[in-house]
Design a protein around this nucleic acid. Sequence first.
DNA 1: CCATATAGTTCAGAACACATACTAATTCCC
DNA 2: GGGAATTAGTATGTGTTCTGAACTATATGG
Lengths: 404, 404
Amino acid sequence: MREHGAASTTPGRVGDVRRQNLALVLGNIGPDTRATRADIAAATGLTKASVSSLVAELLETGLVEELGVTRDGERGRPGVGLALDARRGALGAEINVDYLAVGVVDLHGTLRFHEVADAENRGRDAEDVLGELSALARRCVEAAQTAGVTLLGGGLAVPGLVNPARGTVLTAPNLGWRDADLSTALGGLIPDAPFGVVLSNEANSAALAELWYGHGASLRDYLFISGEVGVGGGLVIGSELFAGPQGYAGEVGHVVVEPGGRRCSCGGRGCLETVAGQEAILAAAGITDGGSTTAARMSALQAALGAGDAQAMSAVERAGHYLGIAVVSAGRLVDLSAVVLGGHFAALGTWIRPALLSSLDGFAPGLVPADRVAFSELGTTAALRGAAGGALLRALAAPYELLP
Amino acid sequence: MREHGAASTTPGRVGDVRRQNLALVLGNIGPDTRATRADIAAATGLTKASVSSLVAELLETGLVEELGVTRDGERGRPGVGLALDARRGALGAEINVDYLAVGVVDLHGTLRFHEVADAENRGRDAEDVLGELSALARRCVEAAQTAGVTLLGGGLAVPGLVNPARGTVLTAPNLGWRDADLSTALGGLIPDAPFGVVLSNEANSAALAELWYGHGASLRDYLFISGEVGVGGGLVIGSELFAGPQGYAGEVGHVVVEPGGRRCSCGGRGCLETVAGQEAILAAAGITDGGSTTAARMSALQAALGAGDAQAMSAVERAGHYLGIAVVSAGRLVDLSAVVLGGHFAALGTWIRPALLSSLDGFAPGLVPADRVAFSELGTTAALRGAAGGALLRALAAPYELLP
DNA sequence: CCATATAGTTCAGAACACATACTAATTCCC
DNA sequence: GGGAATTAGTATGTGTTCTGAACTATATGG
């Protein structure tokens, strides 16, 4: 048994125990659960003494606040309620092909401020786009400041493959970006953010937004599929994003669903994107007015569907059929039995759902029950919420970073 | 941000640090690396004092032995070489449709004893099969005893979905088993094994065998595809098996590769198994002698291929084509760029490889380079080696279990 | 008003890694 | 051949952290 890498590669120090327990205690404090020190001791298995000491340190970080004595009418001394402090938050931002979005999410999960600006970013220079984004962000940061919300960090989601560690976009085909270095722009978005601003993939961030602020309440494991100009995705497994060896997992848009099908921009053939991407659906629906924006044509498609247009219906049903194939393949491979659809799939939910269900039933009866096929309700704020949530999670996982 | 489960759910105690460091030190000791305490201190970042103390405890477990002073001609006091003790091993076993296999693997990764017995287990009673397996196992256990190899634990691999915690087979379609409880039989295989005998899926175990004893030397992340009567698989990501939420990940046999294709035994349609399973390949090759065993017909197929039979060639090429589709879909979803093929695919490697490569190139050029398409060389011992290796890894991950 | 129950704090004790100083064993070089 | 230099491994005191038991604080119930 060579290279039985059974354990981590870093030595455990005694201090690591405290770091783990700080995060553990913090994980038992919610936005409004009013958990007391005694509750936490019971829930975690730590002694009251340890919890007291850990909570004292968490109060210092500013992530947690005391709500005062909870009089619940029970016998005995009442405990002091603890909750995450809503005066801490993070910035979330998204660059997409046809809009920019920025917002602030606090530790209670509330979207406190946000701005969405229509834009036509396809082929536009990265520096140019980032300038516009920075202006939007500055307004949000100032609004947070005046409202007394301290920003701990932030996230920026883009529709492409990214290297979060370096702050670079390897490739964003629909924006026309290759090897774009956004690290300095990211650093400038929030002054003195202890957890920095991190780059992420748009579909991955939207998948996480769904976990934290959407259907995640009832789902711990699912495939998220984001329909935009391209088709992206994210795998959420055990309430965590499964990133894969290189961080590019979840690329469901290039799963092969029609072996004899059309060539794809990725160089392959029969990818899901070639039959369920915006352009493919619009073309199949016969909505081919190249002059208007993609967003406008999507609205036209919805209007046609509302009017019962047969060609539009069959185009969407076709997309649902192929979506089902991709979901089944993903379900078998990664052991998933739930799917959440976002982006344009959410907007087309009413019409796409029956075809998707029938496809699922045909290709893998019983694998994905109908009540585990969900549609996102987060709209254009999904990715920014996920990006902000990621920053909040970094803070909650490493609260000791906020101590002297 | 509700339920931000940022950390583990168990409290960290001071003693956990030692457990982690025991495993960390052990992870730096190989079969014959002759690592010294000083080497380990340098590699792990622990101090020499800590390493000395940890090594002393590991020597007590019997997993590690001192090889004596290493005279390397360098200046300074020579160190004492440390290595995993080959006198510790584990039992591995496999029940498959047409054979039983049992063996003992020691901590150096050497297969010390093994027996493979042909059998026709399809539809045979579980108790009956386990009786025969136990007899084979008893011989191996005795051989280990007389050779001075102490068995720490074991593993049994079966072609089906299993619940390792309970020791039950939920379903093994090709054996005809449903809800079979093997826990008592497992417990009886090795007397007083400190790490027990654990049930596993055959393809998953074979995937791990490949990691530890096969192509894993050069691959940390890959999809393993096992061609048997059914088509199974396993995902190895970051040098670990990715089991998925319920433990059923890697079921590549039921990825949809031919949407308009045949019905599958799983109830679906167009699954990989319907075009690349043994029966499918044999039927397409025109080798339809229902009287002889599947194994005999596979030999006939190889003979036909060797003779250049056109129908046999096109049958295998077809399987390779569809294998490529499944590999591409898996690669996109889970971010993989390597594949290892085992079972009958390994036996057909010479003929299947060109079709697979051309399929990969057609559906996702550049995703899986030709030098990352490998074929297993472990034959019928793959699953038993993986099952034994799993037991060894449990011991290496929790050496403190062997201390008083 | 006192018994009882629950919340939270204080303090001694044990476990552990670390830093430093030590002993042990080898090679280098005059 | 013998001392200097070098490297391996051990011994000891210190700081951190959890635990458990005793203690204080604050409520309800009769």
